[in-house]
Write a protein that binds this DNA or RNA. Sequence first.
DNA 1: TAAATTTACGTAACCAGTTACGTAAATGTG
DNA 2: CACATTTACGTAACTGGTTACGTAAATTTA
Lengths: 161, 161
Amino acid sequence: MSEDFLLEMGYSGLTGRLKRLSDAFMYQTRDLYREYDEDIEPNWHMIFLLLQKNETMTVTALAEALQLSHPAIVKLINKMKKKGYIDSVVDAEDKRKYDLMLSQKAKQKLPKFQKYWEAGEKALQELLNHNKQLLEQLEQLEAKMAETDFRTRMDKLLVNE
Amino acid sequence: MSEDFLLEMGYSGLTGRLKRLSDAFMYQTRDLYREYDEDIEPNWHMIFLLLQKNETMTVTALAEALQLSHPAIVKLINKMKKKGYIDSVVDAEDKRKYDLMLSQKAKQKLPKFQKYWEAGEKALQELLNHNKQLLEQLEQLEAKMAETDFRTRMDKLLVNE
DNA sequence: TAAATTTACGTAACCAGTTACGTAAATGTG
DNA sequence: CACATTTACGTAACTGGTTACGTAAATTTA
């Protein structure tokens, strides 16, 4: 038996391999943060960047930008608040909304965090042989999924069989 | 603001995009199974295939073949047992081990399941434009990660800075 | 302007993984 | 052969997502 069954399985193994890879990146990044005693999580990265770029954003705006569900953002934000990285105020014009922004602590720590993020980016570039082929392939796949998603394609294939 | 921040972020967005993609495949496949009233989960696919190929396997053997932790396999297997797809007997020679195998129900349902899996494979081929470039790119990435993982590469880059 | 609808956010319950720890069986060793 | 070590599996607690449902504020509409 081979050492990696998913690799053997060609197309059918793809989804599992994507999962394994994304998990590996996440766990390894988290390990590194812990080793360096930083109380941040890997998936906060993009939240930090978005709030750095946009000053204030709402839960919904973050969810759209990252294409996650709003409860996912709520969970993230609550943890970041608990650690003191996020401040929020009720929106003046729409009391349903919270305007989220980086705290002083976050702004102060950002330069340090940036070093980790840069290291991550460089490590990724190494892993991808400094070319964007994988990125481009993924972009094509994402575009195709946006046209007609996996579910719908399976459905059609099952019906037309 | 762009509609997809991760896409904008190049290398840094990659890990999030892998996560999104693998989640999308999983959720959409699960939806399809539910629509067709099949009480199976997406991640059982490879377990079914492995047990079809190998007759009996232990928890550890499955974990190695799929490169998952053993508790992950235990959880999977318990659910599959609960649904009656897996039988297990204590190994005759080593009482710590369970020999896992497909139940009669599983064997009988396999041809039906195979149709879903084939549809999934075809849908994936469509999404990949019937070429294996993405698979190959991923394989290279996996090989590089096996050489020196992401964590170690980040570490080096941080130290040498 | 009153009522219906939509939007923003929160909560609960679920699924998929992980690491850390514990126990019992098998194996290695003095 | 007794004891120490390793291996196989199980359980608990955690992270990261999801969908489904509820509530309050804003907006639309009759």
